[in-house]
């Protein structure tokens, strides 16, 4: 269970560029929740994910993971329990190392990084088997450098790396936004499969409203650093993209939903 309590975060405090990115955000993710997060640019979606993973320090508020207060843990320490896939396919893997070496590093998560061999033959066979489940043919290219892979292949690999050692929470930050449509579909399929099979508690940011409604069991809409809508159950099942836009406009009287990217992806 992930509890976010009264989290606020300000960028550039005391400067002319001061921007409050999160304003007193609170919500709780139950075990197995797959929550999609939508909102226009600058609404605080990515910032929310980055404060959960520890990239940014919060001004105030608390974050509990399975009743443990992780508010002041450094990023690397939280990573043992938090899996991440970034928007930029370059960020999730080490490009000059082989596919196998990348997977081996992911498999070491939470273990000692001593002077034992980087990959044992047993681990190698296991990694190959895991990789074959992606159905991308990568299992025959274990010794290829990751730099040779396409963006979609990299994101699929990163997704596998993030879940090779099961995290308590999986954070997906628009992880298909930089991909071509076919690759994006493939990566989303894999996401649904991996999250579903392992009942992973997941927070997925997306710009695509249709995606937000068709994946997961709950949808959060953010605006100006706060949560303005939290849909679940029947209400969410009956919701349409048009309905979402309508709701957004109601909540923000005077301010129209004018984000090109969101509208284009209706």
């Amino acid at each position: 269970m992930l509890e976010i309590q009264h989290v606020s975060l300000t960028f550039g405090q005391g400067t002319i560029n001061e921007k409050q990115a999160l304003k007193n955000v609170s919500f709780t993710l139950k075990d197995g929740d797959f929550v999609t997060v939508i909102g226009s640019n600058g609404s605080g979606k990515s910032t929310l994910l980055n404060s959960i993973s520890g990239v940014y320090e919060m001004d105030c508020g608390r974050i509990f993971l399975d009743d443990v207060d992780i508010s002041f843990w450094p990023e690397y320490k939280r990573s043992r329990f938090v899996g991440r896939v970034f928007q930029d396919p370059l960020l999730g893997t080490a490009y000059a190392m082989t596919i196998e070496e990348n997977l081996a590093m992911a498999l070491m998560k939470g273990q000692q990084h001593g002077l034992q061999p980087g990959i044992s033959s047993k681990e190698s066979a296991y990694l190959k088997e895991q990789l074959s489940r992606l159905d991308l043919g990568l299992e025959d290219r274990m010794k290829d450098k990751v730099g040779l892979l396409s963006g979609g292949q990299r994101q699929a690999l990163t997704l596998l790396m993030a879940t090779l050692v099961m995290p308590k929470v999986l954070l997906l930050d628009e992880h298909t936004a930089a991909l071509d449509p076919a690759s994006a579909r493939k990566v989303m399929e894999l996401t649904r499969e991996i999250v579903g099979k392992n009942q992973l508690t997941t927070l997925m940011v997306t710009h695509n409203m249709q995606q937000a409604l068709s994946y997961g069991n709950r949808t959060i809409m953010m605006n100006e650093g706060g949560i303005i809508l939290d849909l679940e159950g029947e209400e969410r099942q009956n919701m349409t993209v048009e309905g979402l836009v309508e709701l957004f406009n109601q909540k923000n009287q005077g301010e129209k939903l004018e984000n090109d990217r969101m509208l284009l992806q209706l």
Partner: peptide, 19 residues
Amino acid sequence: FILRGTGDNQQMVRALGVD
């Protein structure tokens, strides 16, 4: 491995739980 990974991509290594 982790040392080489750190030179390649620090962000990734932190995401894998290493200081």
